[in-house]
């Protein structure tokens, strides 16, 4: 059953250098890439660091999964098939507390569409409803 009524998320298909992210998600862990030479966290995953163009492989580090809601929209006329049955639905930008330069997307399950508390603290959860390939998807819910 979907976390949000009517939502049929397109299921992420892990690829190449991004696979560790999705493997971690299946273990209910949130990880980001890390570039050692320039000490920079990276999300979404990249093949190489854009800042220093190091040839060293990028590492991975687990982050706590705490963040805040930056801004949001309410999707009312999506072009994406799996979202049309869930409209209206929140579309929020989450900044990561450990590195606010990184942002994540969220539909804020549990928060009614359009009633988003901008600036509120959130924590990562994992959407287990995505069945194809049994890929868990990081989501965020308001805390406190």
């Amino acid at each position: 059953m979907s976390m949000i009524d009517g939502l049929e998320r397109p299921v992420p298909v892990p690829f190449d250098w991004a696979k560790p992210f999705w493997d971690a998600a299946n273990e209910k862990k949130l990880v980001v890439q890390h570039c050692g030479p320039c000490d920079l966290n990276i999300y979404p995953p990249k093949e190489k660091c854009n800042e220093c163009d190091t040839t060293e492989p990028l590492g991975w580090k687990e982050v706590e999964g705490k963040g805040h809601i930056d801004v949001y929209l309410v999707i009312k006329d999506s072009r994406i098939k799996g979202f049309r049955g869930a409209q209206p639905i929140n579309f929020a930008i989450i900044t990561l507390d450990e590195d606010p330069g990184l942002n994540f997307l969220s539909n804020l399950p549990g928060t009614p569409a359009g009633e988003v508390p901008v600036g509120a603290a959130v924590e990562v959860i994992f959407d287990e409803s995505v069945e194809v390939g049994r890929q868990l998807v990081p989501e965020w819910r308001v805390i406190g």
Partner: peptide, 27 residues
């Protein structure tokens, strides 16, 4: 309808870089 024929928008899967956007409804 504009955008509705786009194969990525009609797929049950999000491939490549879309894996980090489409599952949350980003177009």
């Amino acid at each position: 309808r504009y955008g509705h024929n786009n194969p990525a928008n009609n797929s049950n899967e999000a491939k490549g870089g879309n894996a980090f956007t489409l599952p949350w409804g980003y177009q």
